[in-house]
Amino acid sequence: MSHASLSTTDYLKGIPRKRSASLAMFTDGVGRVLLVEPTYKDVWEVPGGAVELNESPRDAAAREVKEELGLVIQTGRLLAVDCPPVEGSTEGLIFVYNGGHLTKEQASGIALATQELRSWQWCTIEQARERMRPLVARRIEATLSAQATNALVELENGYPIR
């Protein structure tokens, strides 16, 4: 059957689907990044989560921050896009947005979604490496560099594409 004889609906059914997630990376102005400790896994993460059907990655990042941390934010610019390996799951794309610098006053307003998160903490990149999967720590390190240099970084498995 040629593509010309397929309806749009049938054609779209045959296109591979990718999962996507959006994250918002917050810093405290002295080089630390805000990490959260999920209740459902043993490693820490950056605030964020799955992009829902018909939702933009940018909107997903803001929604997830509101749901997880109780903060209403204006999502900053895109800092990184990562294509992590497929390990027993569907392939996906990770979008990391600039959440900005949180002041002490803003951080004191964090209200964790306790069914999803145990705690949060400001962490150096060394602390992130201790708490996160290596892939995620690499992603955060590359994203911090992109933020510092006003760049956008493309990643595969957390490694910058050069």
Rank of each mutant, 00 (worst) to 15 (best):
M1Y: 10
H3T: 13
A4P: 00
T8G: 12
Y11N: 10
K13R: 14
G14I: 02
P16N: 11
R17N: 07
R19H: 12
S20A: 14
A21I: 06
S22Q: 06
A24M: 13
A24V: 12
M25T: 07
M25A: 13
F26W: 10
F26S: 01
T27C: 11
T27K: 04
G29Q: 11
V30F: 00
R32C: 01
L35D: 02
V36G: 01
Y40S: 09
Y40W: 13
Y40G: 02
E45C: 05
E45W: 09
G48K: 02
G49K: 00
G49E: 00
A50I: 08
L53A: 14
S56K: 08
A62H: 06
V65C: 07
K66M: 08
K66D: 13
E68G: 06
E68W: 00
E68S: 04
Q74Y: 01
Q74R: 11
T75I: 07
T75C: 11
R77C: 09
R77T: 15
L79K: 00
A80I: 00
D82H: 05
C83A: 14
C83V: 09
P84L: 05
P84C: 04
P85R: 15
V86W: 03
E87V: 10
G88R: 06
E91T: 06
E91R: 07
F95V: 01
H101M: 09
H101N: 10
L102V: 04
L102G: 03
Q106P: 07
A107Y: 01
A107H: 03
S108Y: 10
I110V: 13
I110P: 09
L112R: 04
A113L: 13
Q115V: 12
E116I: 00
R118N: 15
W122H: 04
C123R: 06
T124N: 12
T124E: 14
I125V: 13
A128P: 04
E130L: 00
L135G: 06
A137H: 08
R138H: 05
R139P: 03
E141I: 07
A142R: 04
A146I: 10
Q147W: 12
L152R: 12
L152V: 09
V153Q: 06
P160F: 02
R162D: 15
